[in-house]
Design a protein around this nucleic acid. Structure first.
Lengths: 335, 335
DNA sequence: ATGAAAGCGCTAACAA
DNA sequence: TTGTTAGCGCTTTCAT
């Protein structure tokens, strides 16, 4: 068995209480006593037992972050930012990868394995309104990305519709008249729905038709994007002169397919992505993309869980939409 | 206060022991009793308290993973793989980002905040032999990547020297005679030293001179790689006909710099990277790279901590070097 | 198949 | 300023 406070107290000839005081930097401990206790801790190699402390204090100092996967660079970025922000408030982050599985997302909701966390930040993909009652009562939760519950949940997201509108307006402004939407129908998420709405609205506002053959269903992966565009090019449908991809992976895949088909970007086809992952800057041509301020999303989310953890429980739900920005790069630089 | 086992026991009219049995799927519980207890748990919304369980059991079911950062895609990949592997053994992973700071790496060694973990997997960058005595005794630790301690520590890495040799041999085999090494002197790590050794050995074995002007010092970032090559091209030193970059970020940066300088890859300069991150496959030209089998590294590391956690403490240290593979792609496809 | 009860290591209320 | 002590919620040994 590891050495406990009792052992230290015994060796130092003080009470457990005093040891606790020293460990927790309690003000009123006589320097000589403190010295003696520290000496004893050193000798014994004492390390406080966090489980016991948590049990007693009712807090663990840990936050759960639930993301669908690690492959999409966006989630790795989000994780990095959340870890960084959490640290400034003294939390450690425990990451759970849901694999976009409904069961596993439910598991978190119900308090599953992350039992050791004081709260969770969750990027849910498959949760439904109907799942809300499974939410463990009193367990601080912040949703990031899609807003899957109508009920009172803190949420931080980005204005998907507006952002999509900005992207498509940009394509039109550089002369595109036949704009493709790449990545519709990606599972049961509302994200794609919102972005599609933005796309439709913009075309309509510009007096352009929404052509069903330019709405390409694909999962949001790079290879998928590449495949979809390759198939499209091989078909005899007239090519688009602009592509709005639902995320950067799709866009980067598209870039590659277009190039290998001998099409020039942006001269023949202009491309806009979404997420502004690091690679977008370095791709060639570099990719115009919607940049969603991951740091701010992380900061806000962490702040919100922290408020729930420390604050009065009966707070009303907060919804935050963070800024976004269109980064114009080579993939749309024409005229 | 949350509902505890006692409450459930009371409502179900059984003892705490029985509730515990139900929760832990103990075999010998009468179906009707089990039913009644589950009913009570449902009604009360009972959730087991993990802190108490950990305190009692002496294990938390969590592993710490310490990585220098999240920006380098390699570490994100590693994290993903570790999380996946850990899960199969029932662990949850807590990620700590050290920022390559010596203090923070020491903190982990000493048992710092990750007190709640049963063991740690660590990709240490700044640890020194001298730090070893700070290691918390009995705390399971596996080093990944560089081997920083001489002492008895489990370690899983890749044969850096051999891999570097393979890379440079490949460059020579496609006709390179003036091979640059990009990314020497990257902090106090032994990784770069080993790869440099491999580089030198190979040149010598091929009867080629090791030219100091072809050893480029840079940090291992993309922008850094790009800048370094741009500077080199702008200088009046004769250009290399092959580049071995210490990692893919550097290589991808180099690719970009070469292209904007009007040089063709692989015709004018062939390029090999290290790590085989996803992007290497999708870059254009796609990047030849050393692929270090991250999954296997992760699997091995997790297996080793697990053995330490469950096994007899006096096991001797294990050192594992996992396989690597040279993925030949467009960036060296000449002849 | 189930009950009673002893702690795991720590914090904090109460005393002194 | 420090000592004493009651639990936090759970697992598990010993009974029954």
């Amino acid at each position: 068995m590891a050495v406990s406070m009792r052992d230290v107290a015994q060796l130092a000839g003080v009470s457990q209480r005093t040891v606790s005081n020293v460990v927790n930097d309690y003000q009123f401990v006589r320097p000589e006593t403190r010295e003696r206790v520290q000496q004893a801790m050193e000798t014994l190699g004492y390390v406080p037992n966090a489980a016991a402390r948590s049990l007693r204090a009712g807090r663990t100092g840990m936050l759960a972050l639930v993301i669908p996967n690690f492959e999409a660079r966006y989630f790795a970025d989000l994780a990095g930012a959340v870890i960084h922000e959490a640290e400034t408030l003294g939390y450690t982050v425990l990451i759970e990868v849901s694999g976009a599985s409904h069961d596993r997302e439910l598991g978190v909701l119900a308090g599953g394995r992350s039992q050791l966390t004081d709260g969770a930040i969750m990027s849910a993909l498959t949760l439904q309104q109907a799942d809300e009652h499974l939410r463990r009562p009193g367990y601080p939760l912040v949703l990031v990305g899609d807003l899957v519950f109508e009920g009172p949940v803190d949420h931080v997201g980005i204005p998907n519709r507006e952002a999509a509108r900005t992207a498509v307006e940009h394509l039109i402004s550089v002369g595109c008249r036949r704009v493709m939407l790449l990545g519709t129908e990606n599972g049961p998420t509302t994200t794609s729905k919102l972005r599609e709405q933005g796309y439709r609205e913009t075309l309509e506002a510009a007096g352009l038709p929404v052509l069903p053959e330019l709405l390409l269903d694909t999962e949001w992966g790079r290879q998928r994007g590449q495949d979809a565009i390759e198939r499209f090019v091989a078909s005899d449908i007239e090519l688009p002169d602009g592509i709005f991809a639902m995320n950067d992976s799709l866009a980067l895949g598209a870039l590659r397919a277009l190039r290998s088909a001998g099409l020039r970007v942006p001269e023949d086809v202009a491309v806009v992505g979404f997420d502004d992952v690091e690679e977008a800057r370095f791709a060639s041509p570099s990719l115009t993309s919607i940049s969603p301020a991951v740091e701010e999303i992380a900061r806000t989310a962490v702040r919100l869980v922290h408020e729930q953890i420390t604050g009065r429980p009966a707070r009303t739900a907060t919804h935050v939409l963070v800024e976004y920005e269109l980064k114009v790069r080579e993939s749309t630089a024409r005229q």
